[in-house]
Design a protein around this nucleic acid. Sequence first.
DNA 1: ATTATCTTTTTGGTATACCAAAAATAATGA
DNA 2: TCATTATTTTTGGTATACCAAAAAGATAAT
Lengths: 218, 218
Amino acid sequence: MRQETIENYLKTIYNLSSNNTAVVNNQKIADRLSLNPATVTEGLRKLHELKYIVYEKSYGSRLTTSGSKLALDIIRRHRIWETYLAKELGFGWDEVHAIAEELEHVNNVKLINKLASILGNPIYDPHGDPIPDEKGKIQKSNFIKLSETKLKLNYKVMGVTDHSTTFLKYLEKHNLIIGANINVKTIEDFDNSIVLICQKKEVNISPKAADCIIVQSI
Amino acid sequence: MRQETIENYLKTIYNLSSNNTAVVNNQKIADRLSLNPATVTEGLRKLHELKYIVYEKSYGSRLTTSGSKLALDIIRRHRIWETYLAKELGFGWDEVHAIAEELEHVNNVKLINKLASILGNPIYDPHGDPIPDEKGKIQKSNFIKLSETKLKLNYKVMGVTDHSTTFLKYLEKHNLIIGANINVKTIEDFDNSIVLICQKKEVNISPKAADCIIVQSI
DNA sequence: ATTATCTTTTTGGTATACCAAAAATAATGA
DNA sequence: TCATTATTTTTGGTATACCAAAAAGATAAT
């Protein structure tokens, strides 16, 4: 199996079972990687042979220790590159994902560590996602979705779970950038949309959008 | 044909016919890319179909305009990355080639132009090789090897092609640092060793060493 | 419990990128 | 020129990564 293929599968499996214990189903992997389900079945069989995953027929996949290690390494590379592109090279946070998707496959520990060091060894990337350290350790967070927040409390925007360009542009338009402080003013009864104060302006957020925004209580 | 495969062939063909007019033979391509000659024959046939090269059976290959354009683009990416790795990220000149070999396949014009801009849009890379501009234009280099110099003329040391510690220490001992001005005094008939004046001192350079030192006529 | 639906797997097939060994073609040297 | 050597091409074959469509298996809905 080509290294890039392996890396794309493992990364996807990791991301689809965020807590890294849940079993992932083939359909979702196929969707994420834009592959035919038949291809995924085949791929997972091989990854099982290579001992990167435990794959049980018609049930799903779970990363092994070695698979998890590789997945975290790829995710580290991806997120370090995203951060570097945004912070050091002036790319917008809606642009960095696509480029990092390619750069992440360049496997050179010294390079990634050098970039990380220039960035001050960040723990979160521009989307608010945690960056694993060299050993694969991830900073556990007390982040919640905006849709789970309580009235009148103050929060800081920490990240997003949807990385589509449309969504990122939508956020930018409302000044909901990473690090922004917000106050939850109202939660509408009839549609659960949220009215919040951000930079002294009132912003109305749909429940769908609120479900994709990660905040931290402050 | 996969993009990476195409790029590796075109880059190699370009580098093997440095003036870009000479016809390249298959064996050399096979050697450079560590491929079986049979594979190369096949590859060249496909590149001909794709109109990247003109390939005449049992004769050789020459890049077309579109092939040359792609080759120059890949070479630009490679040399910009090499320079960036060396100058901005602190890698040694002996390390940058291998990493750039992977990074060069990430095709993002904005990224490469940004790196180039940070570097001050350099025209030469750390090895003294010219960097094509965005349009593929190359600054014709007047860099030559010390072993190709003419008697009595003055030169400036511009780079080296051997980056081993032993060689670099040897150069340092003779004050042959980058930027040093030299005058070629004698070229010994019996062994082609070169006697030159550097910082008012006479230095004797072996033909092997002279072959690894890049100079420019001044 | 039994359809109906959704998911997964199997089957049969394509395209790419490679190789080893044999055959054909050039190039070279006596 | 003709034999020797070097290079290139052909032939036959492998492994990977994919897909479409059919078959099998699981899940949900009434």
